[in-house]
Design a protein around this nucleic acid. Structure first.
Lengths: 118, 118
DNA sequence: CTTATGTTCAACCAAGTGGTTGAACATCTT
DNA sequence: AAGATGTTCAACCACTTGGTTGAACATAAG
């Protein structure tokens, strides 16, 4: 019942967990686009797309610039940095362990410890 | 109503979107652990933790090995590869664009010489 | 055999998600 | 002013999620 507000990392990963939202981001790699432009190729209502965009916006992955009645969206790839770093740090930890294991095995192969057996 | 089954990427990002599950993964960096071991430091019931572990398992991020009554969990960092690649590919696209823009501006500023390549 | 330990299953609940439709609001065009 | 276009807001719905409790199941230990 503590209901803390979700962290940036939570929001980012949750936003990326939906294929429609990833598709929207992919669409925004090329250029900015209006809500309607983004919705056109997607197999759902404009309102549904509008909701997806809010999720992306809340996660900081997309920024909105209102010009007249049009809302132009641009992707904010920098917002992915934290999410990427979590994974790379995590896997880096493993690569270190694998390296250590490899080094250990190699050293044992070259100078076999007498009290251990393969 | 088409209700396709969620992709691996969906499952992975959804699994990472919860701080409890990230904490579980962090705990499993060091060594394998039993469900009870994982649950002990967490501020929720064992059953809740059991559910979180299922989510991680369904995403392939954790593997379970049953020995007697104990279920030993090990992290599977390789399962993060696809999720990481999506982000790196995405941001790489941007870095390319930024590089291209920088090169363009620089070449225009410096000289009519078309020698780009740092 | 009986009891304690480790884990899941099942039912429940409140809140969130991903979609819908219909209305409202804002702005551009005629 | 009137109409068309772009977008959000609000209500609704089915489903999922993250938590709970209580029971059941599986195995280890006395």
């Amino acid at each position: 019942m503590v209901e803390r507000s979700p962290s940036t990392l939570d929001l980012t990963y949750a936003a990326l967990a939906d294929p429609t939202r990833r598709e929207i981001l992919r669409q925004l790699r090329l250029t900015e686009a209006r809500v309607t432009d983004i919705a056109r190729p997607l197999p759902m209502s404009l309102n549904a797309v509008s909701k997806h965009i809010s999720v992306l916006e809340r996660a900081g992955l997309v920024r909105r610039e209102i010009r007249g009645r049009d809302h132009f969206l641009t992707a904010q790839p920098a917002a992915l940095a934290e999410a990427e770093r979590w994974i790379t740090d995590y896997t880096a930890f493993w690569e270190h362990r694998v390296d250590a294991l490899a080094a250990h095995l190699e050293s044992r192969q070259q100078h076999p410890a007498p009290e251990e057996q393969a």
